[in-house]
Each structure stands twice: as C-alpha cells, then as structure tokens.
Design a protein around this nucleic acid. Structure first.
Length: 193
DNA sequence: TATAAGATTTACT
DNA sequence: GTAAATCTTATAT
C-alpha cells in the first residue's frame, strides 16, 4: 500500500528519514515498472541547514518544489550529470526533504540493469545518483506527486530492526561546516537480497 | 554576461 | 589514488 499524505506531512524530517528505511520506492516510467527497497537516506532540514539548497530561505526555481508541501518528489541535477531523488516532507512553505542515497533492486532488475548498463551487485544502486538512475528517475521529474503519479513509495511491511540501522553524519557536504556533523544519515546495515 | 562550485560516479594511472 | 565528465545555480563583473 502507498504511504499516506499524513506520513509526508510530518514535522520531523529526521524521523521521516528514519522511517523511510525499508520502504519500497516504485516507479512506472516509460511503461516500465521497477522498484527497490530504500536502504539509505539523509535528512535535509530546510532553512536552518547549511547543507540544504533551501538554507537561509533561498527560494529559486530549483528549490521551489521543496516549498510545495510533503508528498512531492524533488529531483536535482548534481555535478551536471547525476539526478538525485528527494522526498519532500513537512507542510507547505517549509522546505524539508529526505535524500534517497541507496536502494536494493526488487522488481524489474533486468530493466534497471539496462538503464545502468551493468549487472546488479556491489555498487549497482548504493549511491544517490545510481539509485535514481536505476529506477529511471530524471531531474525532469522534479515536482512529481508521490501519490498519483509515476513515482510512489509503498509500505510492504518489511521489518527493519532498530539495531540494524546505522546513524552517521552526512556524506559529501563538508562545505556545510558544523551542520555537516549532524547525525542525519540512516543506513540499513542488513544485507538485502 | 561571465565564472566558480556543487547533496557524484566512473575511468584511468 | 587522482581526474574527468558536464550543467544548473549563485555570485561577481
């Protein structure tokens, strides 16, 4: 079943990032159905977070999606090459988002292998750019509604034990100074099959 | 208008 | 381990 609107509208973006571990990200793009279990996330705490694009209430064409309210997809092009997929959370006007850093291939692995041009295995979809690419998500999809569009998240009752979740500082945001040290990254250590 | 840097991945030395 | 690929946004002329 798909996650409800109230799940995304929650006020605590860090808690939502934690809850997204073990959920299933599903896409139906260009007639092809693929999905993957979310294994790694990072929270971006809006205007108070130097690592966030919306830090200091920077409202631009790119960040506008994050102000649209929980339940939208924010997809951003990084380094001119990679599409990074985020889940927008909190209520309208508060630019919070959760970056999906890794998934475990579930449905349509052959399709994902074709998209990635490599076989599943180590390094297949355990980075923010590669995970989005495997699922066929492109930055042109930014702003998509997660409850009625081509991208959505399901709860398949996959149980994730508290002890199997590793909490660490975020990756690749050294420029954010002290804000880079917040334990906003969640990683499912249990290997998935 | 022009330039620098970025929530990264991949290939090559 | 180091560097190239490649484009949008933010900041500076």
């Amino acid at each position: 079943m798909k996650l409800s609107a109230s799940f995304y509208k929650g006020r605590d973006v860090v808690l939502i990032a934690r809850k997204l571990i073990g959920k299933v990200l599903v896409t139906f793009i260009e007639g092809q159905y693929t999905s993957g279990i979310i294994t790694e996330t990072e929270a971006y705490n809006g205007i108070y977070d130097k690592a966030s694009h919306a830090y200091g209430d920077r409202r631009t064409m790119r960040t506008e999606v994050m102000y649209g309210g929980g339940g939208l997809a924010y997809v951003y092009l990084c380094y001119g090459i990679h599409s990074l997929f985020n889940v927008v959370t909190n209520v309208e006007g508060v630019p919070n988002a959760v970056l999906v850093r890794g998934v475990c291939p579930l449905d349509g692995t052959e399709i994902m292998e074709a998209r990635r041009k490599r076989k599943t295995g180590k390094g297949f979809s355990d980075g923010p750019g590669t995970a989005a690419k495997a699922l066929g998500i492109h930055y042109s999809q930014s702003g998509a509604d997660l409850r009625g569009g081509m991208i959505w998240i399901e709860d398949r009752k996959i149980r994730v034990a508290e002890k199997d979740i590793l909490v660490t500082p975020r990756i690749g945001v050294d420029y954010a100074a002290e804000d880079a040290l917040f334990p906003y990254r969640f990683l499912w250590t249990k290997p998935c099959k």
